[in-house]
Simulated scan of single mutants.
Amino acid sequence: MFEQQKKSYTVQEIKRKLEQYCVYQDRCHKEVEQKMRDYQLIPEAREQILLSLLQDNFLNEERFAKSFARGKFRIKNWGKQRIIRELKFKDISAYNIKTALKEIDETAYIETIYRITQNRNSVITESNHYKRKKKLIDFLLRKGFENDLIYKVVEEVVT
């Protein structure tokens, strides 16, 4: 039938598009490189644009890791393990992951795990004490909290 013709862009146009992509929301290198692959750029142009984005501070891995950790904790109530796993998946360096985790306030972290455990406990209809605990533990593990913290909180909440 009809073959869709891909619109071709100049390197400057793509650079501007990627700058807007990075301004809209902090991005990691992996996301920007994927976007460049979508535009089917030659390697030289890719390097030139990436270098330009880094120099003009549109692309900053540390800033991305910090805002990612803050956002996922505050909005989605993720635990540190889940945040670490997701950042590793996005190829963020160990140093930046460690820096990002410092963005999470320890008291807020503890308050959050207690709050979501109590909320979840009130929703679970299971009457068997052990099955209820298991469901809570599984839920908190999926959220990415640490094992020792989970067991401590579940013991206190489920009585």
Rank of each mutant, 00 (worst) to 15 (best):
L50S: 11
I104G: 15
R27S: 01
R46W: 02
H29K: 09
I110H: 09
R82F: 07
A100G: 15
I75W: 00
I104Y: 13
A45H: 07
D91P: 00
K90E: 02
K88P: 06
D56G: 05
R63Y: 08
D26K: 11
R46L: 02
L41T: 01
K98D: 13
I110P: 03
Y24P: 00
R37D: 15
Q118A: 12
T107Q: 15
R74N: 09
S52H: 10
I83P: 13
I92W: 04
Q81M: 14
D56I: 02
S67D: 05
I113E: 13
Y24M: 10
K80P: 08
K72Q: 14
D38E: 15
E31S: 10
L51V: 14
L53G: 12
P43Q: 03
G79T: 07
H29F: 01
Y39Q: 04
I75T: 12
E103Y: 05
D105G: 09
A69S: 14
R46A: 09
A94R: 05
K80H: 04
E62T: 15
W78L: 14
Y114W: 10
K72R: 10
L59A: 06
I84N: 08
K30Q: 01
E47V: 03
N96K: 15
G79E: 10
A100V: 14
Y95N: 12
F58N: 10
G79M: 06
C28Q: 00
P43N: 01
S67C: 02
K102G: 13
D105F: 07
T117P: 03
L54R: 15
T99G: 15
D105M: 04
E111M: 14
D26E: 05
T117E: 06
A65W: 12
K76F: 15
K90D: 03
I49W: 03
Y114D: 04
G71S: 09
Q118S: 14
Y109L: 10
E33S: 05
N57P: 00
T99K: 15
I116H: 09
E47T: 03
L87N: 07
D91F: 02
T112N: 14
